[in-house]
Amino acid sequence: MTWVTFLGNATDPKIGGIAFFGIFLSLVVFLIGQWLFKISNGFFLFQPLFVGMVLGIFILWLLSKWFGVALPTFYTAAYKPGGDILFWFLNPATIAFAVPLYRRNDVFKKFWLEIILSLVVGMVISLFAIYYISKGLGLNNDVISSMLPQAATTAIAMPISGAIGGTPAVTAMACILNAVLIYALADILIKVFRLNSDPVGAGLGLGTAGHTVGSAKAVQLGSVQGAMASIAVVVISIVVDVVVPPFAHMMGLF
């Protein structure tokens, strides 16, 4: 038994589901992030999720060097079994957003038409902006295709990315970075662009750009923002389903 398998090989029946390392590491790096965030008086680069991600990858990289294996191999053997268990809880956490949505059912019922129109029109404008920025930065077509569906949740964005000639792994990466970035930058962006003057818009924007993590941020801002971000997560995924493939076709990406 090598150290790599000892640290959490859940697939080896002889060792039997040691998934503790992944869960332990996730908790430790996140708590370090929370502590750093607190002692730095809320410095945006010390957001717990961002610190957790960077520190987690760094520690795995150090350990993989220590044991002399490739980082992806080490990740799969040592971290993934525990990480997958935590990851599963995003399923119930996503459906939990029905509660903030229902709490402000009055707002949804009053503005449902504005919400859907804003998300469809806003999505199309964003697609043009993302397309021309990627073009301007000199990315090739398959990377551009991978960038377009990132507003949907990962499970929707990945197959669409593949269908329009992109690389699903790049899209998944974009979706994850969206969430991490929104969690770190939301406060600054809201202040700079004065988004909170319209709580409905701020909520929809956070849910679109930051997925469920953006919605969790929106819930902290207020009940209206939370409800709007929750509805955005659902509606924008459907909008991406419908709008992105024709857009990619129109732009001649595949």
Binding site: G22, L25, S26, L27, V29, F30, P48, L49, G52, M53, G56, I57, L60, Y75, Y79, G82, G83, D84, L86, F87, F89, L90, A93, T154, I176, A179, V180, Y183, T212, V213, S215, A216
Partner: peptide, 10 residues
């Protein structure tokens, strides 16, 4: 939610 997203980041 923010904590549950750590495995996705890693």
């Amino acid at each position: 939610i923010a904590f549950l997203f750590v495995p996705s980041g890693v």
